[in-house]
Design a binder for these strands. Sequence first.
DNA 1: AAAATGAGACCGGTGTTAGGC
DNA 2: AGCCTAACACCGGTCTCATTT
Lengths: 343, 343
Amino acid sequence: MATARRPTLADVARLSGMSKTAVSLVLNDRPSRMSDEAADRIRTAAAQLGYKPDPAAQSLRSGKTRSIGFISDQVTITRFASAMVRGTLRAAKELDHTVLIAETGDDVSQLAESFREMIDRRVDGIMVGLMAARMVDVPPAPPGVPVVIVNGRTPDELPSVLPDEYEAGRAMASALLDAGHRRIGIIGDLPAAANPRRSVTISRRFAGIDDVLREAGLTAVRVDVDDWGPDIGYREALRMLPEHPDLTAVLASTDGTAFGVMQALTELGLRVPDDISIVSFDDEDLASMVHPGLTTARLPYEEMARHGVQMLLGERELAHELLPMPVITRGSVRTVTPGSTGA
Amino acid sequence: MATARRPTLADVARLSGMSKTAVSLVLNDRPSRMSDEAADRIRTAAAQLGYKPDPAAQSLRSGKTRSIGFISDQVTITRFASAMVRGTLRAAKELDHTVLIAETGDDVSQLAESFREMIDRRVDGIMVGLMAARMVDVPPAPPGVPVVIVNGRTPDELPSVLPDEYEAGRAMASALLDAGHRRIGIIGDLPAAANPRRSVTISRRFAGIDDVLREAGLTAVRVDVDDWGPDIGYREALRMLPEHPDLTAVLASTDGTAFGVMQALTELGLRVPDDISIVSFDDEDLASMVHPGLTTARLPYEEMARHGVQMLLGERELAHELLPMPVITRGSVRTVTPGSTGA
DNA sequence: AAAATGAGACCGGTGTTAGGC
DNA sequence: AGCCTAACACCGGTCTCATTT
């Protein structure tokens, strides 16, 4: 009663009456012309046995594991992380690779440890994914093992994929202007964010906004804050709106901020978008769950991850890429007649 | 200029002046007594070279890959999926295994395909995780490859891990009763959910609620619906509350439903928890983001996944497990004096 | 004769070289 | 000489069995 062993190449050779070599050549479509008859016999035998090559044996021989490592600071918290995981898994699958996933939290030493683990497991490449587009330090990888940073940067300029925040800033500011808004409040103009260890891109977001406003000859009402959660939006909106009753639109630094702003608006008896329009950035889950849905610029996490994997596996040039942030139009912006409230 | 090759066991043997056998025995702490001196020399050499065994070679020899497959219908959408992924990764890491992840969507044929892929990759076990605790069909796995279902069941009664929804139902109903509530509205009493292909547990949730109410001699106001999103909660609350102004609490079938209910309450000018208390189930992200936070019974996804992995890897008996759903107390329930509104 | 160590087969593929017709 | 096929070494570990003192 031998335990049903999985069929090996040798089994296929035996059943088809050919040699291992012949089987290997045929099943890998090598440019050595076997007789069609022999090839057929081999393929039939392989199919009959349900033969699949053993990846361990292939790895041992080839030195490649057909696996990549994905290290993220938070694999498991937000839509962002999920989207990045999804993009990574899908792109890897398309290229017939598996993904080893590790989560580091914010601990730098954890990153180094995860790096070591992945390398010990002989991954063919490592992708580091960040939730906030920060500057990070990454340990060196052995020769032949490429490293790509997704949604982040390293001081030594490893290949990276980042969202094009400048254009997104321009796009959202333009969205408000195009809808006729002239009196705009900005909540979450983050000076603290200029710190690249915290974000290498948020400042670009505001640069885009600023340029558009300046080109239009407008000055917005701004409030500088040091974070981007709902609490901030709630607090600052409660302060800003009563002080500036002429505002027709709010531009929030993130969906989280916008969510807080919306709660404040409800309390102030203001309705979105009838009384106030609002736009934000990121396109979190929240953005589609609130009423009305938020018009926002989507962080293209899935696409970024996909590009990262493709770089890693040689399907795309190892470089610095900037990916567009698509504008997701929902119901939070109302078109106003330009001139109805001033200017 | 040889490309810096990774050190092998043979390299360690050479450097230490011992045989491969000796090195293998020492580094694996085998109960064959090498002289302490030899062992030291070997360990020193290994450390000096930074030697790590090649997993492919080990797999080839052992027939084990030290990897498990995790197949989920939606790896990437909700907190649930993320929590399950996190639990899986962590438990696997503790047991020194890697995880291959695949996502099927709702497509059954996809499940079979993912199964095949995992098996072709020679995983040591397969875990199937579901977002809604459904009944699913799972293809057979080869002998020696265990399969565990997390948050679901199979007709052939494969080992599974499920949340204890009955107790959760009891707990949340009791939470309202203990806070003095007697007039309770239930939104989302799902008859459709009795279909096990949709959920094998939701009916248990309501059974727990019903038993507690019956034991207390109470009858709730109920509305049967066929889904559990925010829209449902919004719509049904707008209908129920005006009709039953004496209600002091609402029990919502899910956090999503509860979120919709809360939006309706705001529109009706009712405040949570001052005018109406509310409890729900699941503990999604939302539950902690709304004001006030929702008191809810948490689906223990991370723990379920962790138990599933441990079953798979022989650290826990392969059986049917029911895991408790902890009550997360936030600010959505007010204590009322019993008898102030009736009874 | 027990304790310490080493030689070599083996896992399942791949690729090179030698051989058959 | 020109096709096709077979034998065998090799990848890097683990393990059995033999050998030495």
